[in-house]
Amino acid sequence: MKDTQAQPIVEIEDLRVTFPQAEGSVRAVRGVSLALHPGESLGVVGESGSGKSVSWMAVMRLLRAPPAEVEAGRLRLAGIEVMQARREELTELRGRAAAMIFQDPMTAFDPVFTIGHQIIETIRAHRATSKRAARAEALDLLERVEIRNAEAILDSYPHQLSGGMLQRAMIAMALSCRPQVLIADEPTTALDVTVQAQILQLIKDLQDEMGMGLVMITHDLGVVAETVDRVVVMYGGKVMEEAPVVELFEDPRHPYTRALMVSIPGQEGGRRRLTEIPGASPDPSDPPEGCPFHPRCTQADAQCAAEEPPMAVLGPGRRAACWRLT
């Protein structure tokens, strides 16, 4: 379904997000550029503190400013200039142009209203429909995310449902206005393993069916391998590498991506020591000079510590920021 010739649906250029603090500002995102084409699925992989979630919160204008300071050379989503968006454009942007689902479904719903109420209010925030018509639509949506007793779930309160059920309901709510892009921020991390696989399959199916763009934000390379077309690897608030998913797994070019892949447990049988990445993620209020990964990189030299590596284009849809690229 992807159409790389067309105008990108999301364009991010040199995005920077800073949270000023008394002792040194936290520089969560430090110059991120990327694009998403209509109907395409993009995986954004990174560990905590990599800036992966914050970038997309900024795209949805969900960071409270202050404290957040957001700057970007360009930030466009479905034709909306995000930074300049006024009230009506924001309503258009959120929910209709792009919808977002979050990590912990247990805290994502207002505890004092029913699931149905919360889906219906979403529909009615974007379209003038009667409550009755919106309820019928909500019922449809719940059935679409494979909830069997949809009628009962509609009248349930969040605390009465399991995490997996709530995540399905959240997806239904996100899809209620047929968004052009679905941003899924660690949508399976808080769920049980067997439920995780089901939710991933559901998101994939719905993306195909509705032809929407998908941004899958995750720490888990396995999730990326299962769901997306293209991957951006982030570290220390920057993009380290970008590649089509097959190429990324077959030929990772950035030392961080490679280290990450070999450190995943359970790839081979037998009890064994894993290849670990020494050290810890950089402190976002005091990021290292040069390449953010150099203190943990086995190939780093003086240049890596002194100068920031430029983003090098390695082929169609492939780029990486590293001095030691071979």
């Binding site: 969900l62 309503t91 959120r94 929910g95 919808a99 805290t107 207002d110 209010e121 925030a125 959240m170």
Partner: peptide
């Protein structure tokens, strides 16, 4: 500061709706 308020914003509710219908009740 509850996560569900972020969800309400993300789905396009107006700030007024969020404050008067959800935050007030909670």
């Amino acid at each position: 500061n509850k996560p569900f308020v972020t969800v309400l914003r993300a789905k396009g509710l107006s700030e007024r709706q969020i404050v008067f219908q959800h935050v007030m009740r909670n």
